[in-house]
Simulated assay, not measured.
Amino acid sequence: MSVKSNSPRWKWPVSTFVLGWAVAICMVWWSMTAYSFQIDAEHRPIDAWPQEADLTLAPDRPTVLLFLHPRCPCSVASLTELEQAIAATPAELRPSVLVIATVPEQYDAKWTDTKTIAQSESLPGASVLFDVGGRESQKFGAASSGHVMAFAPSGDLLYSGGVTQSRGHEGINLGRVSLTEALAGNHAEPEEAATLPVFGCRLCLPDETCPIEGSGNSVSSSVLHMSPR
């Protein structure tokens, strides 16, 4: 006697397979989504340019700082979005831009010759500085790659946060729009400066193990030095 294809003994294995496949798809989707919005480190909030900073605040226009981990692939999107924000700013209001790339105390070309650094050096009007040991980044409270800060000539904070919708994601987003508005003068009072999350790798900071760390024997005698063009 033959078993019909719609017999209950066939339905259970098929149902179990379909359910297992659906669960697997959901787990993969959840894993990818969770990573996209993962925040590796929390920054320390500030409301003004640190007095102990060794960087130079522009006296006649806003100053924008972008803190980077040179080996963070997600930060390529942050650079693209920052360039878009600056391009959308009227020429007379465009800021002084400093890209602060944190590197370990001992580092080599694996840290300085990266796609992220190359794109940083091609950013119009920007200067790239290597922050050895992350000491300068720590003064500003930055903790994640892709963190953008904008300051008025007075030193008041205008914007702090990321400029991407999620990790490594390019496209119009609230961070980029908020930064553009801040640079154009369409921002709230300094104490109400927009602050948004940053999606990127943890920066190389003092007293911490540097993520994606590589070995090298090149040691800088200064805390900051400019990338050669």
Rank of each mutant, 00 (worst) to 15 (best):
S2F: 09
N6S: 00
K11E: 00
P13R: 07
F17C: 14
F17A: 15
G20E: 13
G20S: 15
G20Q: 14
W21E: 11
A22F: 15
A22T: 13
A22P: 05
A24Y: 13
A24T: 13
I25F: 13
I25T: 12
I25P: 02
W30R: 15
W30Y: 15
M32W: 13
M32C: 06
T33R: 15
A34F: 14
A34I: 07
Y35Q: 15
Q38G: 01
I39D: 03
E42R: 12
H43I: 03
P45W: 09
I46D: 06
I46W: 02
D47S: 12
P50R: 03
Q51L: 05
A53L: 11
P59M: 00
R61Y: 03
R61S: 04
L65R: 01
F67Q: 03
L68I: 11
P70H: 00
P70I: 01
S75V: 12
A77H: 04
S78P: 05
T80W: 01
E81R: 06
E83C: 02
Q84A: 12
Q84P: 00
I86C: 09
I86P: 02
I86T: 13
A87M: 08
A88Q: 11
R94Y: 07
R94P: 09
P95F: 05
S96P: 04
S96E: 15
L98N: 02
L98P: 00
V99D: 00
E105R: 09
Q106G: 00
A109E: 10
W111S: 09
D113T: 11
D113K: 14
T114N: 09
T114Y: 09
A118C: 00
S120I: 11
E121A: 14
A126H: 10
S127I: 10
V128A: 10
V128R: 07
L129P: 03
D131W: 14
V132K: 07
G133A: 13
S137F: 08
K139I: 01
F140C: 06
A143S: 14
S144V: 13
S145G: 15
H147R: 05
H147A: 03
V148G: 06
M149V: 08
M149N: 05
A152Y: 00
D156V: 08
Y159W: 05
Y159C: 02
G161W: 00
V163Q: 04
V163A: 03
Q165C: 02
S166C: 06
H169G: 03
E170H: 04
E170T: 14
E170I: 14
N173C: 10
L174D: 14
L174P: 00
G175W: 00
S178C: 07
L179I: 07
E181T: 03
E181N: 14
E181H: 08
A182F: 08
A184N: 11
E189T: 12
E189M: 10
P190L: 07
P190H: 05
E192M: 13
A193R: 13
L196M: 15
F199A: 04
F199S: 01
R202W: 03
C204T: 12
D207E: 11
D207L: 06
T209M: 07
T209F: 10
P211C: 06
P211A: 05
G214R: 04
G216T: 01
N217I: 02
V219Y: 04
V223D: 07
S227N: 11
S227Q: 12
R229Q: 10
